[in-house]
Protein backbone atom coordinates (compact mmCIF):
# COMPACT_ATOMS: atom_id res chain seq x y z
CA UNK A 1 0.00 0.00 0.00
CA UNK A 2 1.25 3.44 -0.82
CA UNK A 3 2.15 5.56 2.20
CA UNK A 4 -0.15 8.49 2.92
CA UNK A 5 2.01 11.60 2.80
CA UNK A 6 -0.74 14.20 3.02
CA UNK A 7 -0.03 16.35 6.02
CA UNK A 8 -2.99 17.73 7.91
CA UNK A 9 -2.89 18.90 11.52
CA UNK A 10 -6.23 17.24 12.20
CA UNK A 11 -5.36 14.00 10.40
CA UNK A 12 -1.79 13.24 11.47
CA UNK A 13 0.10 10.55 9.57
CA UNK A 14 2.98 8.49 10.97
CA UNK A 15 3.27 7.48 14.61
CA UNK A 16 5.70 10.25 15.53
CA UNK A 17 3.49 12.97 14.18
CA UNK A 18 0.36 11.44 15.73
CA UNK A 19 1.78 11.52 19.22
CA UNK A 20 3.38 14.91 18.69
CA UNK A 21 0.13 16.46 17.51
CA UNK A 22 -1.78 15.02 20.46
CA UNK A 23 0.55 16.81 22.86
CA UNK A 24 0.41 20.00 20.81
CA UNK A 25 -3.38 20.03 21.03
CA UNK A 26 -3.29 19.61 24.79
CA UNK A 27 -0.85 22.49 25.19
CA UNK A 28 -2.78 24.79 22.88
CA UNK A 29 -6.00 24.10 24.78
CA UNK A 30 -4.40 24.89 28.15
CA UNK A 31 -2.83 28.00 26.65
CA UNK A 32 -6.15 29.21 25.23
CA UNK A 33 -8.22 28.55 28.34
CA UNK A 34 -5.65 30.13 30.66
CA UNK A 35 -5.42 33.31 28.60
CA UNK A 36 -8.82 33.90 27.09
CA UNK A 37 -10.92 31.74 29.37
CA UNK A 38 -9.79 33.95 32.24
CA UNK A 39 -10.77 37.08 30.33
CA UNK A 40 -14.22 35.63 29.75
CA UNK A 41 -14.45 34.70 33.43
CA UNK A 42 -13.59 38.28 34.44
CA UNK A 43 -16.43 39.51 32.30
CA UNK A 44 -18.90 36.88 33.52
CA UNK A 45 -18.41 37.33 37.25
CA UNK A 46 -18.20 41.14 37.05
CA UNK A 47 -20.47 42.99 39.45
CA UNK A 48 -23.32 44.36 37.28
CA UNK A 49 -23.76 47.30 39.70
CA UNK A 50 -20.21 48.61 39.25
CA UNK A 51 -20.20 50.42 35.91
CA UNK A 52 -17.96 52.96 34.23
CA UNK A 53 -18.32 55.22 31.22
CA UNK A 54 -15.92 54.44 28.43
CA UNK A 55 -15.39 56.62 25.38
CA UNK A 56 -15.03 54.42 22.33
CA UNK A 57 -12.83 55.26 19.37
CA UNK A 58 -15.98 56.06 17.41
CA UNK A 59 -16.61 58.91 19.84
CA UNK A 60 -19.58 57.13 21.34
CA UNK A 61 -19.74 56.99 25.14
CA UNK A 62 -20.99 53.69 26.55
CA UNK A 63 -21.62 52.48 30.06
CA UNK A 64 -20.18 49.05 30.76
CA UNK A 65 -19.26 46.93 33.77
CA UNK A 66 -15.90 47.92 35.19
CA UNK A 67 -15.11 44.29 35.85
CA UNK A 68 -15.17 44.66 39.62
CA UNK A 69 -15.67 41.23 41.20
CA UNK A 70 -14.26 38.92 43.83
CA UNK A 71 -11.39 38.30 41.41
CA UNK A 72 -10.34 41.93 41.48
CA UNK A 73 -11.11 42.63 45.14
CA UNK A 74 -9.22 39.69 46.62
CA UNK A 75 -5.67 40.49 47.59
CA UNK A 76 -2.98 37.99 46.63
CA UNK A 77 0.67 38.77 47.46
CA UNK A 78 -0.55 42.35 47.81
CA UNK A 79 -1.98 42.39 44.27
CA UNK A 80 -5.57 42.51 43.18
CA UNK A 81 -5.78 38.83 42.20
CA UNK A 82 -6.57 39.26 38.48
CA UNK A 83 -3.69 41.68 38.10
CA UNK A 84 -1.27 39.17 39.55
CA UNK A 85 -2.72 36.47 37.35
CA UNK A 86 -2.14 38.40 34.13
CA UNK A 87 1.09 40.16 35.00
CA UNK A 88 2.91 37.24 36.57
CA UNK A 89 1.15 33.90 36.58
CA UNK A 90 0.38 33.80 32.86
CA UNK A 91 4.03 34.33 31.94
CA UNK A 92 5.07 31.63 34.39
CA UNK A 93 2.53 29.27 32.88
CA UNK A 94 3.79 29.99 29.35
CA UNK A 95 7.34 29.15 30.38
CA UNK A 96 6.11 25.95 31.99
CA UNK A 97 4.16 24.94 28.86
CA UNK A 98 7.23 25.50 26.70
CA UNK A 99 9.44 23.55 29.09
CA UNK A 100 6.92 20.71 29.25
CA UNK A 101 6.66 20.45 25.49
CA UNK A 102 10.44 20.47 25.03
CA UNK A 103 10.84 17.67 27.57
CA UNK A 104 8.12 15.66 25.86
CA UNK A 105 9.40 16.04 22.31
CA UNK A 106 13.02 15.34 23.30
CA UNK A 107 11.89 12.07 24.84
CA UNK A 108 9.80 11.21 21.81
CA UNK A 109 12.70 11.89 19.47
CA UNK A 110 15.04 9.77 21.57
CA UNK A 111 12.54 6.94 21.48
CA UNK A 112 12.25 7.06 17.71
CA UNK A 113 15.95 7.41 16.98
CA UNK A 114 16.67 4.26 19.03
CA UNK A 115 14.07 2.29 17.08
Amino acid sequence: MEKDININFFKPVGEFMTRDVKMKKLIIVIWGVATYGFLLLLKLVADPEATVEVTLSTGEVVTQVSGKSFLTETQFLGFPFHYWYSAQFCILLFIFLCWWYCKFIDKLEAEFSSK
Binding site: L42, A46, V52, V54, S66, G67, T72
Partner: peptide, 13 residues
Amino acid sequence: DPSFYLPFANNTA
Protein backbone atom coordinates in the same frame (compact mmCIF):
# COMPACT_ATOMS: atom_id res chain seq x y z
CA ASP B 1 -7.73 55.86 40.79
CA PRO B 2 -9.57 52.52 40.49
CA SER B 3 -9.38 52.62 36.69
CA PHE B 4 -5.74 51.61 37.00
CA TYR B 5 -6.54 48.09 38.09
CA LEU B 6 -10.15 47.44 37.05
CA PRO B 7 -10.17 45.21 33.96
CA PHE B 8 -12.65 47.02 31.76
CA ALA B 9 -12.38 50.58 33.01
CA ASN B 10 -10.50 51.92 29.96
CA ASN B 11 -11.43 49.53 27.23
CA THR B 12 -13.72 46.68 26.31
CA ALA B 13 -13.00 42.99 26.77
